Simulated assay, not measured.
Amino acid sequence: MSASYAVYKLKSHLAMQDPDMPSPRFHTVIFVETTAQGHGSGVKHHVTGDIVQGMHYESEACHNPFESETLHSKELLGYTSASDYPTEFENLLKTLPPPPKQKAFNTQTLKTEPVKSWNPLTFYEPGEARAPLRKCTEWTEQQAIPALQKAGLIVQK
């Protein structure tokens, strides 16, 4: 591979945990380090928003997330070719559906809760098995990383 950029999975601490999901949870992103390795500037790719409104994909410049006080962990996933980045990377990630709305305000319990079905709006009963909620971690680990690897956009050197 000619010129390439390191690609990491970063997990950062959240200000508040979701009571409907197993804890601890982290905000999980793909970070492409576009400066000389170790200097830490680049672009983070992730889904943002919440599961009451629905999430959306975005990418944004990020200066040295390795020194962030909220960083929990970093994992080197591999490398992406400078000639494919950012165009091919972005084009692929934009095609992946972000986590949709999965919670709504329940007027019976006066709480925001996971939704069983939307039409008609139905909530789970106490003790009823619930479908797992999907957020940034699931999108990153179950959709984005596998898709980028399958497309050859993240490879080992």
Rank of each mutant, 00 (worst) to 15 (best):
V7T: 08
V7Q: 10
Y8T: 09
Y8V: 08
Y8D: 01
Y8H: 14
Y8M: 03
Y8L: 02
K9V: 07
L10V: 05
K11T: 07
K11H: 04
K11V: 04
S12W: 03
S12D: 04
S12G: 05
H13G: 02
L14N: 06
A15D: 07
A15Q: 07
M16T: 07
Q17H: 06
D18P: 04
D18N: 14
D18V: 02
D20W: 14
D20H: 12
M21C: 13
P22T: 14
P22E: 10
P22C: 08
P24I: 09
P24A: 10
F26W: 10
H27M: 04
H27E: 08
V29R: 11
V29A: 12
V29Q: 09
I30C: 02
V32L: 08
V32H: 02
E33S: 09
T34C: 10
A36F: 11
Q37A: 15
Q37N: 12
Q37C: 11
Q37K: 12
Q37T: 15
G38Q: 14
G40S: 15
G40H: 08
S41V: 07
S41K: 14
S41P: 11
S41W: 14
G42A: 10
G42W: 05
V43T: 15
V43E: 13
V43N: 14
K44Y: 15
K44V: 15
H45G: 05
H46E: 15
H46M: 11
H46W: 05
V47W: 00
V47E: 00
T48Q: 13
T48Y: 10
D50H: 01
D50E: 02
I51A: 00
I51W: 01
V52F: 11
V52H: 08
G54N: 10
M55I: 01
M55C: 11
H56D: 06
H56M: 12
Y57E: 01
Y57L: 00
E58Q: 14
E58R: 13
S59R: 14
S59W: 10
E60D: 11
E60Q: 13
E60V: 13
A61N: 08
A61S: 11
C62A: 07
C62Q: 10
C62L: 08
C62M: 12
C62W: 13
N64H: 06
N64V: 01
N64L: 03
F66Y: 06
E69Y: 03
T70G: 00
H72C: 02
S73E: 09
E75R: 10
E75A: 03
L76A: 05
G78T: 06
G78P: 07
S81L: 11
S81A: 13
A82P: 01
D84F: 08
D84L: 07
Y85L: 04
P86R: 03
P86Q: 07
T87N: 07
E88T: 03
F89H: 08
F89V: 05
E90A: 02
L93Y: 00
K94W: 08
K94T: 05
K94C: 10
T95I: 02
